[in-house]
């Protein structure tokens, strides 16, 4: 019986090993077929060029809000790392209400196309008693690497709806913790020791997502032709939705405006 199980394990391992190989082959073939042009075709949509772009800005209008000051007095180790007052970075705006840290992503139009997660890990760092980055985008089943760069103990506590909930303490100087999420979802993350520490890990099953920079700009690249619903999400302002139809090799610009 033991030998049979061992055998089956080997078969399973072999299936694992081979399952990635055809993907590589398919991609190589696709590139060859489109030789002469810079077009590459989609892994998930075989034969369809993935050269479209959806880009634009996310803004917020209405009365300016005042950033609240974070009090780190609860942990002297945190306080020590911040000689100057720390302001909340929940809302970060630039000229014309440009909104940083919004997530823009395709919410509909991908269908059942599936994508292998990247082999490199997504990194979520605890630094100076804040999260770096505050908003992390990653893929379902991609490795999430958690790092504590501080001289104090944090706990990483994601509170998901569609994934398993866990809560891990990470003392200073400990090695990185590796985790992953199986399903798509924007997951709030907190540190219970330091109540001001708030962040989000946005998990997608596809690569079409972006987080706005300080100018509120985003870009979704290599999008195949099709009809899509695009959403812009912000932790304080909620979700805005737009539809977009993309022809082959087309670049479209969208603007999302949140109202305060």
């Amino acid at each position: 019986m033991g030998t049979i199980i061992k055998c089956l394990h080997l078969i399973a391992a072999a299936i694992f090993a081979f399952s990635t190989a055809p993907d590589i082959a398919r991609r190589t073939m696709a590139i060859t077929r489109a030789s002469g042009a810079t077009t590459r075709t989609s892994e998930a949509w075989p034969g369809v060029p993935e050269d479209g772009t959806v880009s634009g800005t996310v803004r917020v209008t209405g009365p300016q809000t005042v950033a609240t000051r974070i009090d780190m007095a609860a942990d002297p180790a945190c306080l020590k790392m911040h000689p100057a007052p720390v302001m909340s970075d929940e809302v970060v705006t630039g000229p014309n209400g440009a909104l940083k840290n919004a997530i823009v992503y395709i919410s509909e139009g991908i269908g059942n196309h599936s994508f292998d997660p990247p082999t490199i890990p997504a990194v979520f760092e605890q630094k100076a008693c804040t999260y770096n980055p505050r908003i992390l985008g990653m893929r379902a089943r991609q490795t999430l690497r958690l790092i504590n760069s501080d001289p104090t103990t944090h706990n990483i506590h994601p509170v998901p709806q569609n994934n398993r909930e866990w809560n891990l303490s990470q003392p200073p100087g400990s090695s990185p913790i590796e985790e992953s999420f199986a399903r798509e979802e924007i997951i709030p993350v907190k540190c219970n020791v330091h109540p001001w520490m708030k962040g989000y890990i946005a998990v997608f099953k596809h690569p079409y997502f972006a987080i706005t920079n300080k100018d509120g700009m985003f870009e979704l690249k290599n999008v195949p032709r099709g009809e899509y619903t695009i959403e812009a999400w912000h932790e304080k302002y909620g979700v805005l939705t737009q539809k977009v139809t993309l022809e082959t090799n087309q670049a479209k610009t969208l603007e999302f405006v949140f109202k305060r």
Partner: peptide
């Protein structure tokens, strides 16, 4: 193991 669903984390990696 921690108490999942509460603020009490697992110290297994610490």
């Amino acid at each position: 193991t921690g108490l999942d669903g509460t603020p009490m984390p697992s110290y297994a990696s610490g």
